Simulated scan of single mutants.
Amino acid sequence: MTCWTWFGPAAAVALAAATLAAPGAAEARKTVPFTAEGFRPGTIVIRDRERALYFLAGENRAYRYRVAVGRRGKHWFGTAYVKGKYVNPAWSPPADVRRDKPGLPSVIPGGSPRNPMGPRAIMLDRDEIAIHGTNRPGSIGTFASYGCIRMMNADILDLYERVGLGAEVVVTP
């Protein structure tokens, strides 16, 4: 299962404010009570059924973000770890995406409005899977991806600053 292929940091591109904050983004992110025995602060818990990502902040609270998760047959469950963080990542469609959409270009540069990665990507140690922004904000809250976790661009900017390399990511049904 693959979601994206990273081709290195794109040149720094100033993103328009419209791509950073889609309508309703402010309502999507909130601090909520969260009891997570066995997890340390800094852990990301994704509840697939809820289409929600929780960043554990400690003291029984978490930041909750609405997300899009993998569509039928493309989602995954289990544990992964953050292995990289990227600004304006370029995107190359992996083989399974290219099979479904053969007309896609081989690379879409970072910062392009056509780039499905958005302004930030948090790469996991799991077969080209990432938590990233989106150029399709209407997909948030749905089962839409090829395995990646999509976030509103304003939300990935927020999470990107909070999460550290090596952080645990747990995806539950």
Rank of each mutant, 00 (worst) to 15 (best):
V97D: 05
S139A: 15
E27H: 09
G84K: 00
D96S: 15
I149P: 02
A25G: 00
R29A: 15
A28E: 10
T35D: 10
V45L: 15
E161V: 07
R40G: 09
E59G: 10
R49D: 11
A26Q: 13
P89C: 03
P105C: 08
I149W: 03
N88L: 14
V32N: 06
I108F: 04
W91G: 02
L159R: 05
V67G: 00
V32I: 13
N135Q: 11
D100R: 12
A80H: 02
T142M: 11
T43M: 12
E37D: 14
P41E: 14
I129P: 00
R120F: 13
A26V: 08
R61T: 14
D48W: 12
R29K: 11
G147F: 04
Y86W: 12
C148T: 04
A130T: 01
I129W: 01
I129V: 13
G164T: 12
P33R: 15
D48T: 13
E27V: 02
T35R: 11
T31V: 15
P89F: 01
N115E: 07
G111K: 06
R126N: 03
W76K: 01
P116G: 11
I140M: 04
V82W: 01
Y146N: 15
L159N: 07
I149E: 02
P33C: 07
R66Q: 14
P89M: 03
L104N: 09
Y160R: 09
K101G: 00
A57D: 14
S145C: 09
V107G: 07
A90V: 00
A57I: 08
K101P: 00
D96G: 04
S92K: 09
S112Q: 06
L104V: 10
A57G: 12
E27S: 13
L159K: 04
S145E: 12
R150Y: 10
G42R: 06
R98L: 10
G118T: 06
H75N: 15
P119S: 08
M123N: 01
R66W: 06
E37R: 13
K30M: 12
K101T: 03
L104Q: 10
A144G: 09
R49I: 10
L124W: 00
L104H: 06
G141C: 09
V45P: 04
A80C: 04
V45T: 05
T142G: 07
P41A: 14
P102D: 10
G110D: 08
V32Y: 09
V97P: 04
I44D: 00
L53G: 05
S112L: 07
D155C: 02
L56Y: 12
V163E: 03
R71H: 10
P113K: 10
V97K: 10
R114Q: 15
N88A: 11
R29Q: 13
I131D: 02
D158N: 12
R66E: 13
R64P: 01
V163H: 06
G147N: 05
R162E: 09
F143Q: 11
P109L: 08
T134K: 04
V67T: 06
I140H: 02
N135I: 06
K85I: 03
H75L: 11
T31M: 14
G147A: 11
A57V: 08
G78L: 03
